[in-house]
Nucleic acid binder design. Structure first.
Lengths: 204, 204
DNA sequence: AGCATAAACGGACTTTACCCCGCTTAGTAT
DNA sequence: ATACTAAGCGGGGTAAAGTCCGTTTATGCT
C-alpha cells in the first residue's frame, strides 16, 4: 500500500509510448519543415499521416498547432538554456549581473533570429499569450539578474516583464514586418539598443 | 481629361455602399458582442447573416476575423487619439515631454484594460504582427515625445519600439493570463511601473 | 502471470475561417 | 441619358483546426 512515487504535485510522468510518439512527431515535423518551404505547409493532418499516427494523437501531444512549434523551439532552446545556467560568463554565472543581462539579451536575439520561422509560428491568436510575454524562462532569468542588482523601490516582477517585452518587441516587429529586408545589421542594432536600455534602466 | 483627383498614392476612396456596409457590419458586431458573451461567439457567418449581407462582403471589408476587432478597436480609439493630439495636458500638447509620456502610458493602460476582450481578439497568429508591436500610433507618439527629450547617443526608433513593447507587454500578459483575477490594483501597478521605467530611462 | 485502470490511440465528425468567381451596381466620362 | 469600368456583392466550396468517443495498451499491484 505505498503511496505513488510521484507524490501529488507532478501529474504522473508521460507514458513510454507517448514519449516515443512525441519524439517521433517532432522529428517528422523537422523533416517536413526541411523538405518543404514555409512553416504553414505543416498541417496537422499531414504531420499525422506522415508520422503514421492518428490525428487525435497529434493533438493530444501538442494541444494545438502552435504547440508543435513551441515544442520544437523548446527543444532547440535546451542548449541555449544550458549556456545560460551553467556555461561560461558573461552569459553563464560568474559575471556581474549587469554584464549577464546584456549578454543574455545578445544571446536571445541571436537565437530568435536564427529561429525566426518557428518563433513566428509558435504565436497564436486563440491561445492566450503572444510569445514574448510568455517565455517564462526569459522573464524568470531577467528577474533573477535584476534582483541581484538591488535596485531600490522597484516592482521587480513588473520590471522584469517590461524588459522581457522590450527585448522581444523589436524582434517580433522585424520578424514579422520585413522578414528579409536588410537582415545583417539588424542584429547588431537590436543588440546595441538592448545594451543601451539596460544601461539606462540599471544606472550604468 | 482631368487627372483623377486623388493623385496616385491614395488607392481611391471607398465606395459609398461599401462604407455603409462597413459601418453596418461594425454596428452589428457590437450588438452581437453585447448580447452574447465572449468574443469567440462572433463568427463570420453569423455576423454576415445577422447583418443581412453575404459572407464574402464581410471578408472583403475586413480581410480577416481579427480585422473586425482591429476595426472596432480603431473606432473606439478615435476619441482617445483626439485627447492625445489635441486634448488638455498632460496627455495633450502643452506639458513637458516626460509628463506626456507618463500620461500617455497611463491613458493607454486604462484604455486597453477597458477593451481587453477586443484587444485580445484583435491578435492573430497567421497575420503578421502580434498586437503591441503593431499599434503604429503608440510607437509614433512615443517616438515623438522621446525626440523632444533630446536624449543623446540613442537609437530613437528602436528605443521607441522597446518602450512600446514594455508598455504593452504587461498588459498582454495580464490580459491573457488572469483575465479576471484581482483586477482593481493591477491598473495602478502597471501605471506605476510605467512611470518608474520612464523615469529610469529618461533620467528622472 | 493475471488484473484493474488510467492513459493513449485513431479517425470520423464538426466547425469556421477564408477563397473563388460569375453577377450586380456605384461612380464617371462622354 | 448612356455606356463603360472598376469596385462591390453573394454564397457555395475548400481545407484545416480542433473535438469526441469507442477501442487498445502500458503500467503498477497482487
Amino acid at each position: 500500500m505505498e503511496r505513488p512515487l510521484l507524490p501529488l504535485g507532478a501529474p504522473r510522468a508521460e507514458r513510454a509510448d507517448a514519449a516515443r510518439n512525441r519524439r517521433h512527431l517532432l522529428a517528422t515535423a523537422r523533416t517536413m519543415l526541411a523538405e518543404q518551404g514555409g512553416a504553414d505547409c505543416l498541417t496537422m493532418d499531414a504531420l499525422a499521416e506522415r508520422a503514421g499516427l492518428g490525428k487525435g494523437t497529434v493533438f493530444r501531444r501538442f494541444g494545438t498547432r502552435a504547440g508543435i512549434f513551441q515544442a520544437l523551439l523548446d527543444d532547440d532552446e535546451q542548449a541555449f538554456q544550458q549556456q545560460v545556467m551553467a556555461g561560461p560568463p558573461p552569459l553563464g554565472p560568474g559575471a556581474a549581473p549587469l554584464d549577464r543581462l546584456i549578454a543574455y539579451g545578445r544571446a536571445r536575439i541571436a537565437f530568435l533570429l536564427d529561429h525566426r520561422e518557428m518563433a513566428r509560428a509558435a504565436l497564436d491568436g486563440s491561445l492566450p499569450v503572444p510569445a514574448g510575454t510568455e517565455t517564462p524562462l526569459s522573464r524568470t532569468h531577467i528577474r533573477m539578474l535584476l534582483g541581484q542588482l538591488r535596485l531600490d523601490g522597484v516592482d521587480l516582477p513588473m520590471l522584469a516583464l517590461q524588459l522581457t517585452a522590450a527585448l522581444d518587441g523589436p524582434l517580433l516587429f522585424y520578424l514579422s514586418n520585413s522578414d528579409l529586408t536588410e537582415s545583417t545589421d539588424i542584429q547588431k542594432r537590436m543588440t546595441r539598443a538592448w545594451e543601451d536600455l539596460i544601461q539606462r534602466v540599471c544606472g550604468g
